[in-house]
Design a protein around this nucleic acid. Sequence first.
RNA 1: GGCCCCUUCGUCUAACGGUUAGGACGUCGGCCUCUCACGUCGAAAACAUGGGUUCAAAUCCCGUAGGGGUCACCA
Length: 471
Amino acid sequence: MDKPRVRFAPSPTGYLHIGGARTALFNWLWARRTGGTFVMRIEDTDRERSTQQAVEAIFDGMRWLGLAWDEGPGVGGPHGPYFQTERLDLYREHAERLVREGKAYACYCTKEELEVQRKQAEAEKRQFKYPGTCREKPYDPSKKHVIRFRVPETGSTSWDDLVKGTISTPHETLQDEVILRGDGIPLYNFGVVVDDVTMKITLVGRGDDHVNNTARQILMYQALGYEVPVFGHFPMILGADKTRLSKRHGATSVTAYRDMGYLPEAVVNYLVRLGWSHGDQELFSLEEMIQLFDMKDVGATAGVFNPEKMQWVNHEWLKRLTPPELAKRALPYLRAAGLPAEDDAKLLQVVTVAQERARTLADYAAQFRYFYEPIALDPKAKDKFLVPANAPLLQAVRDGIAGMEGLETAALEKLFHQAAEGRGLGVGKVAQPVRVALTGGTASPGIYDVVQILGREETLRRLDAALKLVG
RNA sequence: GGCCCCUUCGUCUAACGGUUAGGACGUCGGCCUCUCACGUCGAAAACAUGGGUUCAAAUCCCGUAGGGGUCACCA
């Protein structure tokens, strides 16, 4: 059997969104898994809404996720061009052939005429369906016309959907739809069929919302005399209110998650688990997914996008990075937050302590500003811990650090313990005031780590400032 | 409204006729501990509903309800 050929065919009307990314991912995984080919095609026939900017945004998102295409824009391939607007001749040829064979016909009805009929049907509470007005009229290319596809009036078309099983569509619910507009631009269903045929696509994996297009497309394949591919329809991704995921549910573009400090590994991992699973396993590398993914394991039910779980997945991936790798990835986020971070030993220390504490790379900047900037003293923390009673403790720590050779953990530990025990206190009683003095708040990484990252000079400066404040 | 699809903890899901219905996120509690987090232990939490079929149904069939999708010279 030939290797599968799959495709991702977005319309460049906006950024790459979560749902599109998952569709792309499933197709990509299948291609990688089977040694097949992943084709990228841009469906830009809606000239009003398609933009070059959106094309770039989609490519950008795909590249970030690590989903490279084997054929398509940029990489070329034997079945191009890969933009529909560059394939207009192909659609016309196919449409004309259908007209010649009587499987399609020219329709001279105007939009206005049809609109009147549609209104009429609506008024009579009737389902509007193109009545076949031009079905038997002779072909006159000199008159303004569109091409309509002739659909059987009875019977039904069914197919064995890879994820949903057998689906059947009665022909009476279909109509003679327009496949080619007067200006030669194909309509969606026709463009898809001609392209999938000429690009030799063997498996069409796409969103659930295309189920109702499938029978008409199959009818077109048959009219054209081409082999029908296998179809698989992935369930929708929903928002918390169980309606289709959209902007009002929050961020929906994959690049928004990049900007929020998510790792592509995590986004892909989360997305693959939305509609697919492998036993109890939650974490998958791209390599593991490729090995384990199977279209047959894709579930049939729509899934709610859960930002909390994606954050958890992100944290898991963050925890798996080595500190140098983490530093490299975190640096741009610290910079973006206006922090004077460098790719140096200090950054390595910061990301190491942040690794278990922050769930996104953006959190590294948000939560650990005080390693790079003067502290923002939390008033409540100040009132509770920077009080005269704690002055001797702060002083003891300050003097101890001032007199230390280095800042080894063991030495710091000894200092804090002595300061506490000498007064019959627990270490926490010392650590908290110091923590407030050094970080401005009551929650931070281990206090010895904080001292080491800040360094002796800065630690002493902050302790002195706190002592002054205490009075 | 017509047609199509879907229905297991709040959420993602496992189960492929026989399980105390499992795991994960989230939530709550214990432990660990210099705070936070991590880790760890534990708890609460689901088969939409009514009929069949079967010795046996979350699993198969039918109905009902609920949800989603789609009905363009958009994609």
